[in-house]
Nucleic acid binder design. Structure first.
Length: 260
DNA sequence: ATGTCGGAATTATTCCGA
């Protein structure tokens, strides 16, 4: 089973690119973020023609998340209670025994901006919501754009950026709280030393300079993490392709063995 | 060069968010 997360930066602008990727990579279950469409504007038919059912939590213009599945989607959670004013940023679907949540964390802008405190509060609400859903025999994946660089190794320039947004101890504490709740970072589990990014700024030739951040991840409960056999950051889909413009994020894909 | 995108507001240009 292949699971993936991808911030597409606008599903209307990226549809051709996403269809190309679905056809090439054939993931079974995908979390998409930053759709920038209402539910009605989502291209259900085109995605269905590619072999996927879609569950969508959209909004006009900004944010928005979706779960794509080859085997149907039963939505069990749509939105994060109490955080609605920050936009459409969480969606959970159940596939058999597996709970699959995709999130798009608030950006925070900068540590001295009001949005930064709202970002921290959003993560606290996320932890509160997930509490009790990631322990015991629960099988869960929580994936998406976390907008936090979890450790110094995940930044292209920790020395310069430490303490700035995405790189603060407060944000990292929120990610560690998720780890403490039993969620493991699938990429880090398999690649403990690798400096591999998932996002590069459009500006300044950041991609070609490899000035990026690892802010997109697949977290999973231990019983799911035990099944992971490979994790890839799909850099090829951060590149222009046949005249199509890429998102500023690359997909992250993990392969899981069948449940025992 | 704070250098690029996608989308909104508003009507082809400017602003905003990332």
């Amino acid at each position: 089973m292949r699971i993936a997360t991808w911030n597409v930066n606008g599903i209307r602008a990226r549809l051709e690119f996403v269809l190309h990727w679905l056809d090439a990579r054939r993931p079974d279950l995908v979390g998409l973020q930053e759709l920038k469409v209402t539910d009605e504007q989502f291209p259900y038919a085109e995605i269905e023609a590619a072999g996927y059912q879609s569950a969508v939590l959209g909004q006009k213009g900004w944010n928005g998340v979706a779960v794509l599945s080859r085997d149907g989607v039963e939505v069990t959670q749509s939105g994060l209670a109490g955080q609605e004013e920050l936009g459409s940023r969480l969606l959970t679907a159940r596939l058999g025994e597996l709970s699959f949540t995709t999130i798009y964390a608030p950006n925070g802008k900068s540590v001295d901006h009001d949005d930064y405190e709202r970002k921290l509060a959003w993560f606290d609400a996320l932890a509160g919501h997930l509490d009790g859903r990631t322990g015991g025999a629960e099988q869960a994946v929580v994936c998406g754009d976390f907008n936090v660089v979890p450790a110094p190794l995940d930044s292209w320039d920790e020395q310069r950026l430490h303490g700035s947004v995405f790189h603060t101890d407060e944000e990292r504490a929120r990610i560690h709280r998720l780890y403490d709740m039993g969620l493991e970072d699938l990429f880090r589990k398999l690649e403990p030393e690798s400096r591999t990014f998932s996002w590069w700024d459009y500006r300044g030739g950041a991609f070609h300079r490899n000035q990026g951040l690892r802010i997109d991840y697949l977290l999973a409960t231990g019983n799911v993490a035990a099944r992971v056999c490979s994790v890839e950051t799909d850099r090829d889909y951060r590149k222009k392709k046949d005249g199509m413009t890429a998102s500023d994020h690359a997909p992250v894909i993990a392969e899981l063995t069948a449940p025992s």
